[in-house]
């Protein structure tokens, strides 16, 4: 039994969204659905003084986020049908489309904005960790797509050596779901749960 985790290197990510679009192409997702999204967090001010000069406290950083395949997934917990399930061997969380009623509970419960009901498909959809690729010895398509090499994927043991568990805003404290995401934050990044770190691009991610 090897549970898998993502790694996000915030010192490298440039917010380019290649991960997101590569996933959308591979998974053939249309408008309104993305399994991986890139959040922009921006804080601070850039002001102009009376003498016309600037002073800036602006910090800004991106976070690329898919499903964290949590050890204690909120989506699985609330699912009434068992459609949302976690693979015992890999820890990957995915949807059994034949069981899903599309109630949207997983979407509401997940604090990582991962599952979403695709009404056209008639069920909940989300990142499944590219389980067929992982089984074939490849990494999820988003990871292998990253031009800046800011993403990685592998056994939890290996990924946990690369960063702290989900400790980056806008993510909540890891205690809720024990997410399998290990983050190396940039200098600009704020810790998980810091409510001052706002997502400033809701149009692009919700």
């Amino acid at each position: 039994m090897t549970h898998y985790a993502f790694h996000f290197d915030g010192t490298r990510c440039t917010g380019c969204k290649t991960c997101e679009m590569a996933c959308k192409d591979y998974k053939d997702l249309g408008l309104g659905v993305a399994y991986r999204k890139v959040y922009e967090v921006t804080l601070g001010e850039t002001k102009k003084a009376d003498d016309g000069t600037f002073a800036s406290t602006c910090v800004s950083y991106p976070l690329s986020l898919a499903c964290n395949h949590c050890e204690n997934p909120a989506c699985v917990k609330v699912c009434p049908t068992g459609a949302m399930h976690q693979d015992a061997d890999t820890g990957l969380v995915s949807v059994d489309a034949d069981k899903c009623i599309g109630c949207g509970y997983c979407h509401m419960a997940c604090p990582y904005n991962a599952p979403k009901v695709d009404r056209e498909k008639g069920h909940s959809v989300k990142c499944d960790g590219c389980k067929e690729r992982v089984a074939a010895g490849e990494k999820p398509v988003c990871v292998e797509a990253c031009p800046a090499r800011a993403l990685d994927f592998g056994p939890v043991d290996a990924m946990s050596k690369l960063g702290e568990q989900a400790d980056i805003a806008p993510l909540p404290a890891k205690s809720y779901t024990s997410p399998n995401l290990y983050v190396k934050p940039s200098k600009d990044a704020k810790p998980a749960g810091d409510a001052s770190a706002k997502v400033v691009n809701p149009l692009e991610v919700m």
Binding site: K77, V78, P80, T81, G82, K99, C100, I101, G122
Partner: peptide
């Protein structure tokens, strides 16, 4: 009607005890 796939609705009791929605239904 809120469900995307009402046809699968008979499965909602699978989560009885763990899913608050199953308990409600």
């Amino acid at each position: 009607f809120h469900l995307a796939s009402p046809a699968n609705a008979f499965g909602v009791f699978a989560g009885l005890g763990s899913s608050p929605l199953s308990n409600e239904i």
